[in-house]
Write a protein that binds this DNA or RNA. Structure first.
Lengths: 151, 151
DNA sequence: CTGTAACTTGACTTTTCCGTACAGTTTGAG
DNA sequence: CTCAAACTGTACGGAAAAGTCAAGTTACAG
């Protein structure tokens, strides 16, 4: 149960671009440096973000990436959904089907219902937050980040 | 963003065993047939479930797997947690660290806070449901399973 | 006692996902 | 006009996950 790197890095790139302000654009090397990722990897993620319509790229010497919408209007859930798809695929039931049946559970699959509940819970959280929210780096002290998990 | 097959199959196996009743046990071929999975794969999952203490195995001709606790007491969240770990690993920040720093985000990483929120939301849902809940296969009609996703 | 049906275990193969590299295209500065 | 800096896209290699196979151990039925 984890996010794919694409999903996470996609959010991170958008946040960095948002921090550049509504007018300015950010280049791949800049994002790469600020997130500590390789340039090739950033380029790969940004390509998807562009294809999904979250950013526009301008080429040439003064190029870079900019958001297509104000960061306040981009919900995190949108990005995750566009980049990673849903929790369960359409093949969910086919994987357990023995031919014509849907699920091997006599008539209805309680697990799928639970998965949908989980999906809804995730979406609720992710849709509350926007890229702008993340960009202003909310009030979390470093001690809270490190502690509380091992100790 | 998806569950690993181990997590999903683990739940499925436990549900099948729970359906065999509190006294009866289920063999690998039986579970395999009911879930439409290969016997080898079922065996692999059950080994982990046994090591994590969710089931006990009896060998020999009348062998099989049985739950160590009543299905009502096994929360789905427990199983997921035991099988798949958490949403974010401990290496979460190390992956983005450039040496001594924690995160490349000046002082605090808003994404990690969001990830923790998501984790909590997932856990809340998963801990509400028990294996027994799933075993009685709640009231979901087959039409609702197929429709509503593509169309 | 013997055989069969079951669990146990480790290694192996296949598949999928990540990250990287490289060759190509575009654009503005000088 | 030329060059450098930027984006674009494909293709390759490695690592992790998923699934499979085979050999071994146990235990009950007959």
């Amino acid at each position: 149960m984890k996010f794919s790197t694409l999903e996470e890095f996609g959010i991170r790139c958008l946040v960095q671009i948002a921090r550049a302000g509504p007018s300015g654009a950010l280049t791949i090397p800049e994002i790469s440096e600020r997130e500590g990722l390789s340039e090739a990897n950033v380029a790969k993620v940004l390509r998807l973000l562009r294809q999904e319509g979250f950013v526009v790229a301008s080429r040439g010497k003064t190029g870079g990436y900019a958001l297509t919408r104000p960061a306040e209007e981009i919900r995190v859930g949108e990005v995750i959904h566009a980049l990673g798809g849903k929790l369960y695929d359409d093949e969910f039931c086919e994987r357990h089907s023995g031919g014509e049946e849907v699920c091997r559970h006599e008539g209805a699959c309680g697990i799928q219902a639970l998965w949908e509940e989980v999906q809804d819970a995730i979406d609720r959280v992710l849709n509350r937050k926007t890229i702008a929210d993340l960009a202003q780096t909310p009030l979390i002290r470093r001690e809270d980040l490190l502690g509380g998990r091992r100790s």
